[in-house]
């Protein structure tokens, strides 16, 4: 297990190195952020002064070495735009994204699993076909379009739900949370549902496929032949087998939902890290972009590790050191 974790971390380091290299030089090639910050009256001297302040006057390779040096000390640099440490900006915004992603994961599982189970048990029924059609739409219709249609319908037409921001939040252990207030919940519903659609479609398809396969398994027949109640057969005997692929895929998908909730956050002006990333890219705020992407890599590695652990809990055959044959 330890060896496994060490190997994972080593891989992550390599990914981090390559990623910083690409982003650092890539952003440099795109343009000089100074021209975006500086006012139009700024003279040559004024521009040089800003560049010197930000360390942009040095050759790019020297900037990169400095960056690596600081990184080794855990310092990811200050945002060009805000002048505060990039990491603190990310931490400030991250709870909003995490809340949004968690809510959409919950919706995806709560809606997708039962629908998938039903479609798997009655594959030929009309309802099942409707469910599968819905999941196909969820995959293929662009998120931004769905988000806009939701806003048009529920905010503009019906006026039921607010379309912008997080609403009223409550501090839980110093972290602002929307889901606990009525207003916050109303703000959360639309973006969370929009963000959940792809995951939901995936859960539906995986659950259905798993169900259809598992229902023909001998161990399900045997459980039924032993008189085990149908609810128990489906809810435990079949379910635990179905969950294995669902958990694997959802884990990976969850990480990318957190990392790239950009579109949804932009549409609903959700004050999360995704929106922050878009803003940072718009002004070429390199430290913030790099810091965020490092953050994403670390998060992916962590979540994948969690999935592996969860996976081994579900499937005793892959349990590390489980004493199997």
């Amino acid at each position: 297990m330890i060896e496994f974790i060490i190997r994972r971390v080593a891989q992550a380091m390599l990914v981090l190195f390559v990623m910083t290299l690409l982003v650092f030089f890539g952003v440099h090639v795109i343009g000089n952020p100074v021209y975006i910050f500086a006012s139009s009256e700024c003279t040559r001297e004024c521009l040089d002064e800003i560049m010197a302040n930000l360390g942009l006057d040095l050759p790019i390779w020297q900037q990169y070495l400095m960056f690596l040096g600081n990184l080794a000390e855990g310092d990811l640099g200050k945002s060009f735009t805000f002048g505060v440490p990039a990491m603190s900006l990310i931490w400030e915004r991250f709870p909003a994204t995490l809340e949004l992603a968690t809510a959409s994961l919950a919706i995806a599982v709560a809606v997708g699993l039962p629908l998938g189970l039903y479609a798997g048990m009655r594959p030929d029924s009309l309802v099942s076909r409707a469910i599968m059609g819905f999941s196909m739409l969820g995959f293929s219709v662009p998120i931004f379009w769905i988000g806009l249609i939701f806003i048009l319908t529920f905010s503009v037409r019906l006026g039921w739900l607010p379309s912008v921001g997080r609403g009223q939040t409550v501090q839980v252990f110093g972290v602002p949370v929307s889901v606990l207030t009525r207003d916050g919940l109303a703000h959360l519903v639309m973006p969370a549902f929009t963000l959940s659609l792809i995951m939901m479609s995936m859960v539906i398809r995986l659950t259905r496929a798993g169900m259809r396969e598992v229902l023909h398994a001998d161990y399900i027949r045997f459980a039924r032949a032993s008189g085990v109640r149908e609810r128990r057969v489906i809810g435990l005997h079949a379910m635990k087998n179905i969950l294995i692929p669902v958990v694997t895929v959802l884990g990976m998908e969850f990480a990318s939902v957190i990392a790239f909730a950009v579109v949804t956050e932009s549409i609903f002006s959700w004050p999360g890290v995704g929106k922050m990333l878009i803003d940072a890219i718009a002004v070429l705020d390199r430290p913030l972009i790099v810091a965020y992407l490092i953050f994403v890599v670390v998060m992916f590695v962590t979540i994948n590790l969690c999935v592996d652990i969860l996976y081994s809990l579900l499937d005793p055959r892959v349990r590390v050191g489980g004493g199997g044959p």
Partner: peptide, 15 residues
């Protein structure tokens, strides 16, 4: 009651 052919498949692998 019933007993089936393949004991590898008759028992649920994850329970």
């Amino acid at each position: 009651a019933m007993i089936f052919q393949d004991p590898m498949m008759t028992l649920n692998p994850v329970l």
